[in-house]
Nucleic acid binder design. Structure first.
Length: 908
RNA sequence: GCCGGGAUGGCGGAACUGGUAGACGCGCCGGACUCAAAAUCCGGUUCUGGCGACAGAGUGUGGGUUCGAUUCCCUCUCCCGGCACCA
């Protein structure tokens, strides 16, 4: 055995063994065989979110995949039938941007990146089943996107509509609502514009109720993620109310050319119109229908048909409408925007009193939510109150606090009292509590055809059309004779040409005749292909299903998906809490309803790992942009108690820079650490160990060069410990050559530590997923071995066992060195195929235990007693202790509390 | 504003069910080895007082429950994340 630990050679050898033995190829049970049992353990599908092939792995990838890999290897040793696949989220805009910058086709750029990153993943020794690998840009994968899209289109789940969309001016494409963050594109950070474009939507709102309700059952998901999804779906219980139009409003609408449009939302789920009532009406959604009698105005969004009709007759109002449409949603601080409004001069009629109520156009009403119109109740809504105050609108109180004599209640009573209470001045509905009032008023409205109870969601349908080249083609053909025609299943996939190089002037597909020109599938006449492609979030919405059966060219999924799914453990970043995870849940439910899969939810357990942080250093030159310096190039100098940061430039010159604190590793802040250089310097095991040890996996991880060195030191010490032990010759076997009962106390103590460690690591990984404490426990064990100096045959037998346990316990985290050391410890079989050993209960038994003794709850002493000592003995031993007697003195103990096997507390 | 999470040494963190606060690692200090340095090994390292044995204080703040609270309850402060003119 080499005396020195040489990671490169160790890792090469271990990886060759795994490759030669196809160690990580997952297999389904043979047809007819039981899905689990003595031959095949219960399946365990462990999946880390697949990467976008950006070029190189970053530390976030390494952390993500190390967590998944440690779990995979542990579960494999537990006897589970494990699958851990890997693939590539390969469509997307960076490939087009790179193409524009370098003149390389996105396909080539992407596939080169995949090849490079695959080698990186292999160098890190992840237990991945590469036989199931695919990229979402493979026609054999995306043909099923197209196939399912057509099924959705047949069912009406996918539908076309012209609507206001979020337009990213930098990427020149549409974004889904989920992809707009603070009014900016999620990728480019550019201010998003509003455009009207025809595009395809997926009816995710039809699943809103189920997507929300099922969150409660996802108890393997972090609370945080469930809350985020629930907020995003945004369920509100309330009622819709129709206010019949007065003559003036009806005339204005008629003049503008569309009475029926009055109630329609531009968001256009259902062309609502005048609902049940015969008369045209203005429809609103409210969660406070109990305040209906407090309505003193109506407010509609600038895009609302009634606003447009009024604007057509009033240039000043039209100017205001234009201002609102330009300003809204583009501004990050919409919430603090001043509440502005203009009267329309048009009126609607209160559904019960028939009183006319004036309609206003207000900048705080959103066209995309509810009906794009609200009823204004200043007395019971803060926003409405502010608006009414500004515009001189009356305030009418119709709810008062329950219980107390409300006339005398000062606080919390205020004009915009928003709490639930008892109705007053509400005609026949006066004197009712909140729920009773809502029930009664909603029932009365329904009786008149002017409203009903309804649930409103914040979630909107998912627009999937993208005006981009590097994505999955939408399988449609536009024929001058037949209109829009679906590509027949037999002609799928519609293959994306891979040799195009976008130049920034729109979608190159629209300029490529070979793609564009096609015979109409229906009439055979000349037709034109659809050039829009699908949102790349479509690709990632079902890839986890395809890993079960990547080779099936006749069906999207098959029986193997029924075996492997759901994913038992999904691991990825919190940044996907809404987008990807919500889409994947939706897609799974659609496939279920089409009879393709048998599951309701795709991911039984979700683990969201923390980000990787590093220090940020920057310098602001007198002119030009702030520049960032990599922490690797910074020297920290102590200068009279002050810390100064000196950067060394590539040309050797130095510069004093500013420390900007910790932040996620990113290109823009130049604070990334390249995993490749780390692996080259220390080896994959050190990189993996540092990732697992430095922080709990769900928390942020601060990069530390010293920490990495510490991890490397530990592995070297482990190597040395085994080397020292092995070079003294084979140790006698415990049990066979050395009877366990004959061990002396220190030998028994080391054995106990070893077996306790084994049990703790199994629990930490298997139940708690706290890899950091698992590693710490093995470090303690190795420290104990280091202190153990007994070189007798019995002593060496115990050390042999302790070292074996240390190597086994570490093997999920640092598989290469464990592979080598296991052999060095005298085992012919590879450790990867070892079953996780159970801790020996007899090793855990203690004859004598140390109890803590407290006096009045303060730690004062310790006493040793027999492990099976009864309470009276323990009590006597504690009271007899010298230190205890000193503190107790002559006083008679009031009470003595004995916690078996833990402590004694003497109360005086 | 609403919802969720958090605050422990010089630093990352541990203490899982109310029972020895600070495991493990980093850093720092001292020592050994060395001509010297690096590497390695050994010892120390919450704070305050004391040569020391030891004593006192201590888990963001203030209070409560308990024989005993980092852990449970209430109050406040600060930090992180999500949602937000959502009617």
């Amino acid at each position: 055995m080499d005396e020195r630990y040489e990671p490169a050679a160790v890792e090469r050898a271990a990886q060759r063994h795994w490759a030669d033995h196809r160690s990580f190829a997952a297999r389904e049970p043979a047809p007819g065989a039981a899905a689990s049992g003595p031959d095949v353990g219960d399946k365990f599908y462990c999946l880390s979110m697949f990467p976008y092939p950006s070029g190189r792995l970053h530390m976030g990838h390494v952390r993500n995949y190390t967590i998944g890999d440690a779990l995979t290897r542990f579960m494999r040793m537990q006897g589970r039938n494990v699958m851990q696949p890997m693939g590539w989220d390969a469509f997307g805009l960076p490939a087009e941007n790179a193409a524009m910058a370098n003149g390389v086709a996105p396909a080539k750029w992407t596939r080169d990146n995949i090849a490079y990153m695959k080698r990186q993943l292999q160098a890190l020794g992840f237990a991945l089943d590469w036989e199931r690998e695919f990229a979402t840009c493979d026609p054999s994968y995306y043909r099923w996107n197209q196939w399912l899209f057509l099924r959705m289109r047949e069912k009406g789940i996918a539908y076309k509509r012209t609507g206001v969309v979020n337009w990213d001016p930098v990427d020149q494409t549409v974004l889904a609502n989920e992809q707009v963050i603070d009014g900016r594109g999620w990728r480019t950070g550019a201010l998003v514009e509003k455009r009207e474009i025809p595009m395809y939507y997926l009816n995710i709102t039809a699943y809103a109720d189920e997507l929300l309700g099922a969150l409660a059952g996802l108890d393997g998901w972090p609370e945080r993620v469930r809350t985020m999804q629930a907020n995003w779906i945004g369920r509100s219980e309330g009622a819709e109310v129709s206010f019949p139009l007065a003559d003036d409003a009806r005339e204005a609408l008629a003049a503008a050319g569309g009475v029926a449009a009055a109630g329609a939302t531009a968001g256009g789920t259902a062309a609502g119109g005048a609902a049940a009532g015969a008369a045209p009406a203005l429809k609103v959604f409210t969660t406070r229908v109990d305040t209906l009698f407090g309505v003193t105005f109506m407010a509609v969004a600038a895009e609302h048909p009634l606003a447009l009709a009024a604007g057509a007759r009033d240039p000043a109002l039209q100017a205001f409408i234009d201002e609102c449409r330009r300003g809204s949603t583009m501004e990050a601080d919409v919430a603090t925007m001043e509440k502005k409004g203009r009267r329309t001069g048009l009126h609607v009629l209160h559904p019960f009193t028939g009183e006319p109520v004036e309609v206003w156009v207000a900048n705080y009403v959103l066209m995309g939510y509810g009906e794009g119109a609200v009823m204004g109740v200043p007395a019971h809504d803060e926003r409405d109150f502010e608006f009414a105050q500004k515009n001189g609108i009356a305030v009418r109180t119709v709810v008062r606090p329950e219980g107390a004599d409300w006339q005398t209640v000062q606080a919390p009573w205020q004009p915009s009292y928003g709490e639930h209470g008892l109705t007053v001045d509400s005609g026949e509905f006066s004197g009712l509590g909140f729920q009773a009032a809502v029930d009664a008023i909603a029932a009365a409205l329904e009786g008149r055809g002017l409203g009903r109870k309804r649930v409103q969601f914040r979630l909107r349908d998912w627009g999937i059309s993208r005006q981009r080249y590097w994505g999955c083609p939408i399988p449609l053909v536009h024929c001058p004779e037949c209109g829009e025609v679906a590509v027949p299943d037999a002609q799928l996939p519609v293959v994306l040409p891979e040799d195009l190089v976008p130049d920034g002037s729109g979608n190159p597909l629209a300029k490529t005749k070979a793609f564009l020109e096609v015979a109409c599938p229906t009439c055979g006449g000349p037709a034109r292909r659809e050039t829009d492609t699908m949102d790349t979030f479509v690709d990632s919405s079902w890839y986890f299903l395809r890993f079960a059966c990547p080779d099936n060219d006749r069906a999207m999924v098959d029986g193997r998906a029924r075996y492997w799914l759901p994913v038992d453990q999904y691991i990825g970043g919190i940044e996907h809490a809404i987008l990807h995870l919500l889409y994947a849940r939706f897609w799974t439910k659609v496939m279920r309803d089409l009879g393709l899969v048998g599951i309701d939810e795709p991911f039984a357990n979700l683990f969201t790992q923390g980000m990787v942080l590093n220090h940020i250093y920057s310098h602001q030159p007198a002119e030009g942009r702030r520049s960032y310096f990599n922490p690797a190039d910074i020297d920290v100098v102590e200068d009279g108690g002050e810390k100064r940061y000196i950067a060394t430039r590539a040309d050797g010159s130095t510069l004093e820079v500013r420390y900007d604190g910790l932040g996620t590793m990113s290109k823009s802040k130049n604070n990334g650490v390249d995993p490749q250089s780390l692996v080259e310097k220390y080896g994959a095991d050190t990189a993996r160990l540092f990732m697992m040890f430095a922080a709990p996996p769900e928390q942020t991880l601060e990069w530390s060069d010293e920490g990495v060195q510490g991890s490397f030191r530990f592995l070297r010490r482990l190597w040395k410990a085994v080397h020292e032990h092995v070079s003294a010759g084979p140790a006698p076997a415990l049990g066979r050559e050395v009877a366990r009962e004959t061990l002396d106390a220190p030998q028994k103590a080391l054995r106990r530590t070893a077996h306790q460690t084994l049990a703790k690591v199994a629990d930490d990984i298997g139940r708690r997923r706290t890899f950091n404490t698992a590693v710490a426990a093995v470090m303690e064990l190795l420290n104990a071995v280091g202190r153990f100096e007994d070189r007798s045959p019995a002593g060496r037998a115990v050390v042999q066992e302790a070292l074996e346990i240390a190597v086994v316990a570490l093997s999920p985290m640092v598989p290469h060195i464990s592979h080598a050391l296991w052999h060095e410890l005298g085992h012919a079989d590879a450790i990867i195929d070892l079953r996780w050993p159970e801790a020996d209960p007899s090793a855990l038994v203690q004859d004598e235990i140390t109890l803590v003794v407290q006096v009045n709850g303060k730690l004062r002493s310790q006493v040793s007693v027999a492990a099976d000592a009864d309470e009276a003995t323990v009590r006597a031993a504690a009271l007899a202790d010298e230190t205890v007697r000193r503190f107790v003195g002559d006083a008679q103990p009031k009470k003595v509390i004995v916690v078996p096997r833990k402590l004694v507390n003497v109360v005086v």
